[in-house]
Write a protein that binds this DNA or RNA. Structure first.
Lengths: 134, 134
DNA sequence: CATGTACTTAGCTCATCGGTTAAATAACCT
DNA sequence: AGGTTATTTAACCGATGAGCTAAGTACATG
């Protein structure tokens, strides 16, 4: 049985060889041979690692003659980052300051607008999900 | 042999039960019994999961009489977030916009100051590490 | 077509992982 | 001391994971 996406992504990231491969790919698309070079490991081993990374949605692969160029695929990274966001308040100071600010703004807004039905906002849920900077 | 810290952290996160435990702990410190309740699983199994999480630096445990209250430990989360930051440019639009801005600023600064030795800045390295929001 | 290059698949080994039950430890409460 | 509650340790089992070698596939080129 296949694991849920987040589990297979984390599992894929739990190997230093695979993380090193991703670090290399962050510099740009490249071939399997090229990726294998830094490692004291058989080619099939690298091939397996790439399969794991692909299955985890962390890379995608193309076809160019006999080469299978690999590149970073953003989606799973984004998902991991999203999950991590649920815990950001535990370590990110600026996140907490921003939260304080947002809460202040909500309080002020609530003071201006008279309370209607469904006016109450679940701040805790709100601040844990789908945050972007900007 | 023990894995490197990042590997054991990712490995710890690669299990849905353990992620659910962390999600519960995000709501606040609690006991092993309390943590075990939602799961159809023996207590020793939970105990093992907690040991893995503790070893990964994702939780810490106290002592209060016969209870061992668990709570989120920030350090490993932060480390994961830091590692993920190396790849942020692949999915985070606002991150890219910010990078563009920073690069512009560097260009302007460089235009003002006449080129000295070691003036060249490795933007790529710079933008991949130790970023915080402000 | 034959040979070389770039991979992938198959089949094996060994270690680790997630779960189990049974027993041990630790602290509290008569 | 004896019992109850909370949690861990020990010993085991089946499944999965990372590595290997050997063989297979796909494409390019002489």
């Amino acid at each position: 049985m296949p694991l849920d996406p987040l589990s297979s992504t984390f599992a894929a990231l739990a190997d230093p060889t695979r993380r090193a491969i991703l670090a290399r790919l962050a510099l740009g698309e490249t071939s399997v041979m090229e990726l294998a070079k830094p490692f004291d490991m058989s080619l099939p081993a690298i091939s397996k690692h790439l399969k794991v990374l692909e299955h985890a949605g962390l890379i995608s692969r193309g076809r160019e003659a006999q080469w299978r160029p690999c590149r970073i695929a953003p989606a799973s990274f984004k998902q991991v980052d999203g999950w991590l966001g649920n815990f950001r308040r535990f370590w990110d100071e600026s996140f907490n300051r921003l939260d304080g600010l947002l809460e202040e703004m909500k309080v002020e807004e609530a003071a201006k607008a008279p309370p209607r039905s469904q006016r109450k906002v679940r701040v805790t849920k709100e601040k844990q999900r789908g945050r972007t900077r900007g």
